[in-house]
Structures are given as C-alpha cells and as structure tokens.
Amino acid sequence: MWDTFIITPFVNALLYIYMMVGQNFGVAIILFTILIRLVTHPLTAQQVKGTKGMQALNSDPRWIEAQKKYKGDKEKLSQEQMKLYKELGINPFASCLPTIIQFPVIIGLYQSIMLTLASSPIELLNLTKHIYPGFLSISQIIPLDSQFLWMNLGQPERLNLGFLPFGIPVLAIVVLITTYLQSKAMTPATTGSKDQGAQMSKMMNLYMPFLMFYLALTFSSGLSLYFVTSNVVGILQYAALGQVDFKKMFTLPAIFTTKK
C-alpha cells in the first residue's frame, strides 16, 4: 500500500526528473524536493494560518486573564479556551492537521531518495522492482550517476582540501545552519519565556539542528542535499506567507548571548 501509492510513484518521478536533467541526481533531488514542497504548499499555508490563530489567542488579554483566574481549575480553563476559539474563529487543529498530512509525504520523499541511491545489491534489486516497466528503462537508469559537484550522493560528504589532513563536512554544516534558521522561522512569537510551549520550542530549536547535523554527517549526502533543499524551500515558503522576521531569525539563541 505504502509502496504502491507513495514510494513507487515518487521513485519513478524522481528518476524521470533525473533522466530529464541529463542524469544529474543532485539536480533531480533538488527539483523533486521543491516540487513536493510546492504541491504541499496549501497545507503549509493552512498550518501557518492555524499557528497565527494560536498566536492571537496567546496574546489575547482575555486568555491571559483566564489563565491567571483559572490557574487551578483545568476544566474551567479548557471551557474558556474553547469559548475564545469560537470568538476568534480559531480551529485548534488547523496548525497540526496539515503537518500530520505532510508528514507521510515528506517521509515518502525521504525514503524514495534513499531507495533510489541504491548502493548495495539488495538495494539495487529493490529499486528495479519499483520502476514502472515501459515508463523508464532500467538499462538507461543503471548505473545511476550519484556524483554531484564534489559529492558522491551515496556516501557521507566531506570536502577534502589539499592543505588539511581531514575532510570538511560542508553539507552537514549547511544542514545544521538551515535547520536552525527554518526552526526559527517556524517558531511563533510567544507571550513570555515562562510559557511551557515556548520553552519546548526553544529546546527543539536548539537540539533539532544538531540531530540533523549528526544525520547529515553519518548518512548519504543525497539525504543531506534533501535536508538543505527542504529547509531552504521551507524558509522561503514561510517568508512568502509573511511568517519570517529575518532580523529575529539571524539572532543567536539566548544560551549563546546571555552573559552569566
């Protein structure tokens, strides 16, 4: 089911783009990621709209007052919250539902890229099973040219400079930076630093880039290329939706700037 409706169409689309752009798999990954992000843009827009609604609620004086008033009464606070949702026209699921829908698509995209970058016998056999006969020719696709710029997309990336005894993980560093910037762009302005949600977002903003950096450092650079493209397109999408404060986005987190 997952293979039939997600992975196989994605693999064929990815390989079709690969053939169209002169068998350049790096360009194919970039274009396909952009395409998927564009197709799912209405969901992103809906998510931003929902987030903005939640921001409006958080800064609403009635909500702040209710939080103080019903501090010890969760049931009453919940009733008050529902009332304000109605009054402000907020759908509480508007911000999370698009994310839930997008999630399988993003995972499918990710799995398709990994499947297409087959670098071992069983992986290649699996890939041949996912290609639509008559749509693409296996003999033209294999061997897949996984070289892009200085990278072998099937291997972790390192830029080797003659004067250095070690390779620099350029792409992993770019993944770290763009993941941080995207998470900053996605994080809504919050009412106060003591807000639990805000604290959680700050923690995520801090840890997630390092997790992605580790993945980019360890796994195939084709995956890192997908991370970078997806992050950059994500930032642009949020910017187009008026969600990005570029000045705020490029400030370092408080942990690096606060003097003890």
Partner: peptide, 20 residues
C-alpha cells in the same frame, strides 16, 4: 521541560535511522 524535546528527538533519530 526537557522530557518532550528529548523524546521527540530520540523518536526522530530512531525513525530516520530505520528509514535508511
């Protein structure tokens, strides 16, 4: 405060590793 982010990150790491 750290519990949820840590669990999320561990799940993400597990999921992504599994996918590869």
């Amino acid at each position: 405060k750290l519990t949820i982010p840590i669990i999320t990150i561990l799940l993400a790491a597990f999921f992504l590793s599994g996918c590869t």
